[in-house]
C-alpha cells in the first residue's frame, strides 16, 4: 500500500479544514473573526477549501480598533468582497460612545479593549462560536490553550479548568450565553504561515513586505509615524526599509528592518531570525510576563 507523501503543510491544512467543518456542523451560530492580517487571510483560504463550492456557513466579523493600518482595512474589504462573503464590522468607537470602554487618553493602545467590543458583538448576534486565527507558537499562554477553547458567559478563559482535548474529537457544546473560541491554526507556526502564503499565492497587505517608512525609536522599539504616533520632543524621524511581521494597533505595532520584498524572501528571513514574532513587534505584550494570559482571562481572543 503506497501513500503519497504528505508534507507538514498538507497535514496542517487538512487538520484546519476538519476543525472548521466541525464548527459548521455542531455550532448553531458561528462567526469567523477576520482582521485583514496574514493569519486571518490564511484562515479565509482554509475556509474556502473547507466549504467551496458552497458559501461559508458563517459571516466574517471584524472588531475594528480604529487604530489599524489603512492598507490592512483596504485588504480586509477587498478580500471580503472578492469572496462574496458577508462582513460584519464593529468598532471600538461604538463602545467608547456607549461608555462601555473608557480611555485614559485618546491615543492609547487599544488591543486590550477589543475584548469589550468583541463580547458586545457576540451578544448582539448571539454567536456561540468565534473562529480565530491565533497560533500556539505566538505566546506562552496560547501554547496551553485548547483548539476549542470554552468561555463562560463573561467571555473568560479559565486556564486551570480547560476541557481535555483528545484525538481529533472536539467537544463543541455550550449552554446558552456561553461561547467557544476555535483556533483552527493552533498548530501552525509563523514559518508555516509564510510557506502557505507563498504556496497558495495569497494576497496580503503590502506593508508585510519591505518598504520605506518614517519611523521613530521609542522604548527599545521602532514605531511607525502616523496620525496617532508623532515624534515627541527629542525624538527624530528616520526613514528606514522595514516590514511588519504582525499588523495590529498602529500605536504599539513595531516593524522590523528588512529588505524582503516577497513571501519567499520573508521565508528566508524568518528562517534565520533570532527574535519571536510578538517579541519583535508588540509593545503591549512586553509590559509583563503574563500580559496575554491576563487579557485572555478577560475575554480576549
Amino acid at each position: 500500500m503506497s501513500n503519497q507523501p504528505f508534507t507538514h503543510l498538507d497535514v496542517l491544512e487538512s487538520e484546519s479544514i476538519h476543525i472548521m467543518r466541525e464548527v459548521a456542523a455542531e455550532c448553531k451560530n458561528p462567526a469567523l473573526l477576520f482582521s485583514g492580517g496574514k493569519d486571518s487571510i490564511v484562515m479565509l483560504r482554509l475556509a474556502e477549501k473547507a466549504f467551496r463550492p458552497a458559501r461559508f456557513p458563517f459571516p466574517l466579523v471584524h472588531i475594528d480598533t480604529e487604530h489599524n493600518f489603512p492598507e490592512v482595512i483596504a485588504c480586509r474589504d477587498k478580500l471580503a468582497s472578492d469572496l462574496g462573503e458577508r462582513l460584519i464590522v464593529r468598532s471600538l468607537d461604538g463602545s467608547i460612545k456607549k461608555g462601555t470602554i473608557v480611555l485614559k487618553n485618546a491615543d492609547q493602545g487599544r488591543n486590550a479593549f477589543q475584548s469589550v467590543t468583541l463580547l458586545e458583538t457576540i451578544a448582539e448576534f448571539g454567536f456561540d462560536a468565534c473562529i480565530g486565527g491565533a497560533r500556539r507558537d505566538e505566546e506562552k499562554a496560547r501554547a496551553k490553550e485548547r483548539i476549542f477553547s470554552f468561555r463562560d458567559e463573561f467571555g473568560q478563559w479559565d486556564p486551570k479548568n480547560q476541557r481535555p482535548e483528545l484525538w481529533d474529537t472536539y467537544n463543541t457544546r455550550v449552554h446558552a450565553g456561553e461561547n467557544i473560541r476555535v483556533f483552527p491554526i493552533s498548530n501552525w507556526t509563523e514559518m508555516d504561515i509564510w510557506e502557505y502564503i507563498a504556496r497558495e499565492k495569497l494576497y496580503i497587505p503590502d506593508i508585510y513586505y519591505a518598504h520605506e517608512r518614517e519611523v521613530i525609536r521609542r522604548d527599545n522599539g521602532i514605531l511607525p509615524v502616523s496620525h496617532l504616533v508623532q515624534p515627541r520632543p527629542g525624538e527624530t524621524v528616520e526613514k528606514m526599509m522595514v516590514r511588519f511581521r504582525t499588523v495590529g494597533d498602529m500605536t504599539c505595532t513595531c516593524p522590523v528592518e528588512s529588505h524582503a520584498r516577497n513571501a519567499q524572501e520573508i521565508i528566508e528571513e524568518t528562517a534565520i531570525t533570532r527574535i519571536t514574532e510578538r517579541g519583535a513587534t508588540r509593545m503591549d505584550d512586553q509590559t509583563s510576563e503574563a500580559s496575554m494570559e491576563l487579557r485572555k482571562k478577560e475575554g480576549y481572543f
Binding site: A143, K144, P159, K160, S186, N187, T189, A290
Partner: peptide, 21 residues
C-alpha cells in the same frame, strides 16, 4: 512554564504545545 500559576509554583500544570523544526 507558560502560565502565571506555574511560574509561581514552579510546576507545569497542563499540556503545553511547543514547536520547532
Amino acid at each position: 512554564d507558560g502560565l502565571q500559576a506555574e511560574r509561581e509554583q514552579g510546576i507545569t500544570i497542563d499540556v503545553a504545545y511547543r514547536y520547532f523544526a
